[in-house]
Design a binder for these strands. Structure first.
Lengths: 126, 126
DNA sequence: TTAATATATGCTTATCTGCGCATATATTAT
DNA sequence: ATAATATATGCGCAGATAAGCATATATTAA
């Protein structure tokens, strides 16, 4: 993908939200975890993540039924500057996204997440 | 316009070419001069310039029948970083655009341009 | 005044694209 | 094996938008 086409990829609100979360946290996240953060349907999140990956902005790693996405390392000057610009963006929505995201990740790391339905988290009891 | 919507404005190829020319040269240019550089029809260039202006990326100044557009000063961190990113973009098309643009501007400054038809320049003879 | 030039703007069309939905595939738990 | 979960993808629709075209307005030149 040509560098200048990156603007097209980032011009979608949902994709920008997704990318900003991953950029700010530097966390590897699964599709369902991004779902929780951005509160969007699975098929959309999946598509957006794949587009971001196709554009070279994200890298992916499969692990069982989970697919983890994270910001790709880049030595490209354009991408580096762009990332700085995106980091400097402020918006209440991003704050909310980040809050939900961090909570979700925390639960994963504590092995408390069992499944996710309709953007609600359920914890294993027995 | 919200900051993040700037990506939408810059996601169009023609608009990015226009903005890059003005960003690299820091020159005030009229619509017809941008036409020469980008080799696009007048109504399209006019629309794109107005969109870039509306987005706050360009400022405009009217002088007789000419309207000059130039990159707007910005103290916004996001815009400043974004401009750096755009400056670092390399592409053969941008080189060609810049070449045509500089030639056109040079002729204006030497008062050699009289009119512009079909992207071709005509010089006053008598 | 008349003609030419510079710019802006409706209107239409074709294309793009994001979303919703259904569904397929793969992996894990019971 | 069966059920549940995670992810991916094809299809259709609706909304957005870039480009082409015609035309309107304003300014300058002859």
């Amino acid at each position: 993908m040509k560098q200048e086409e990156i603007f097209k990829i980032l011009s979608d609100k949902t994709r920008l939200r997704i990318y900003k979360i991953l950029l700010e946290t530097k966390i590897e996240a699964a599709v369902c975890e991004v779902m929780t953060a951005v509160q969007c349907t699975q098929y959309n999140i999946s598509k957006h993540l794949r587009l971001l990956h196709f554009a070279g902005l994200l890298q992916e790693r499969k692990n069982g039924r989970w697919v983890f996405y994270s910001v790709a390392d880049s030595k490209n000057k354009f991408i580096i500057q762009l990332n700085k610009a995106i980091k400097s963006l402020k918006n209440e929505i991003y704050k909310q996204d980040l809050k939900r995201f961090k909570l979700r990740i925390k639960m994963r790391k504590n092995n408390k997440i069992q499944f996710c339905v309709d953007n609600k988290l359920f914890r294993k009891v027995s």
